[in-house]
Amino acid sequence: MSKNSATRERYYFVDVLNIVSSFAVVALHVSLGVFSPSMDASWVKSVAFQAAAIFAVPVFFMISGMNLLGYRERYSTTHFFLNRFRRVGVSLLAGSLLFYFLYSTFPAYFYSANLIASSSGVIDFVIRLLGNRINDTYWFLYSILYLYLVTPLFSLAINDRRLMRYLICLSCFASVIVPFCKTFLPIDDLGINQLFSLTRFNSICAFYYLLGGYIGRYRTFLDDISAPLCAVGYFVCTCAMIIWGLTSNGYFSGCVAEGYNSYPISISSPLCVAQSLFLLHLLKKEEIKLRALPVEVQSAIKKLSGAALYVYLIHILLVNLQPVGKMAFVHRIINHSPGIKLILVYLISVAIGVFVLDMRRRMFAVKIKRRDNQNQSNE
């Protein structure tokens, strides 16, 4: 990638990462049965889904870091804030309004919607919005908004390779290594929390964000590893997480735990960090091939990438759909199996996303045309 560039070049591998990660987010949410451990094959399948797709949010954070930590080379901090908060803030507000309205109006049609319907109102909406208690899968949006607030500080380090390495190592130690040690060693939580209480450095979100900025600016040792080896790395990490997840929840001992131990397959797991890095570099190495694709295919990739945000915003509505009334037939089709549910929920969500994007483009084109006509008439 270009180290100093006034205009950011489009990278198709980033578009593909957006698509793959949005698909993975759906995979994570159609396999929520993982939180109820059992000896059934369906639970093992849910564990496999979780392990294969846990990279989703880490990759989203890394993409954001790649795109934004060098913003000073393209525009001002004021422009950065206005642009990012308008895009993500409006998406968060619009998505929350949609969920709140549907949950309040049709509580029987969605899982746990009755909790909102029983206390709906303007004040209740504001309180729930501020506390992420409308749709808790939006936690990523809350996290990224806060990261935007500290991006002007992080962006000052992007051109200093050694400083970036220090920041990444610091956040990795606080958000990956310390939780790993706390999981397996009898460490006093109070002491650890007092030592590493700086919010932005014990945040796994900040770690991936900084890591993405570094990868977007500098070469890493993974750049020297071939694409097939990166694919093998992703596969090995995924299999290791599946085995670790099953073992830590008592599957192989024949006595599964009452509560699900999510740490082995989580974004703080060292295996997830490695898996996400292998996947990102695997697709990064395919950039030349992606640039050689026909224009029609590239256009389709751009559309699907643009719809990724909408997939994230609305897919949980389909996941939480309940078998009530006319929706019972749709529910039966979608829930026939986790694989079918994954594909159908993604396809429906991405179709809605593409439709919304198309409508926005049309409205923008009409607005531009009206403005041009008005300018001509004034002349």
Rank of each mutant, 00 (worst) to 15 (best):
A6Q: 15
R8A: 12
E9G: 07
I19G: 02
I19D: 05
S22W: 04
H29Q: 10
S31M: 01
K45D: 04
K45F: 12
A48L: 10
A51Q: 00
V59H: 06
F60D: 01
F60K: 02
I63W: 01
L69H: 00
R74W: 11
R86Y: 13
L92P: 08
L102R: 01
Y111F: 13
L115T: 11
S120G: 06
G121I: 04
D124Q: 11
F125M: 10
V126L: 14
I127E: 10
R128V: 11
R128F: 08
R128P: 09
G131P: 12
S143I: 09
L147N: 06
V150M: 04
L156Y: 11
A157M: 05
N159P: 00
R161C: 07
R165Y: 08
C169W: 11
C172L: 15
C172T: 14
V176D: 10
P179H: 12
D188Y: 14
L190Y: 13
L190R: 13
N193S: 14
L198I: 15
N202A: 09
S203R: 09
S203M: 06
G212P: 09
G213L: 00
Y214P: 01
D223F: 04
A240W: 11
W244R: 04
G245I: 13
L246W: 05
T247Y: 15
T247C: 10
G259S: 14
I265W: 04
I265Y: 03
S266E: 08
A274N: 04
A274P: 02
Q275G: 08
H281W: 05
E287V: 04
A292I: 03
L293P: 00
L293K: 06
Q298R: 15
S305Q: 12
S305Y: 08
V311E: 00
Y312E: 09
L313A: 11
I316V: 14
V319G: 03
N320M: 09
N320L: 09
L321T: 00
L321Y: 01
Q322I: 02
P323N: 14
G325R: 01
M327K: 01
M327T: 05
A328C: 02
R332A: 08
P338I: 03
I340W: 03
I340A: 13
K341D: 08
L347A: 11
V350M: 02
F355K: 12
V356L: 15
K367Q: 15
Q374W: 13
N378L: 14
E379P: 00
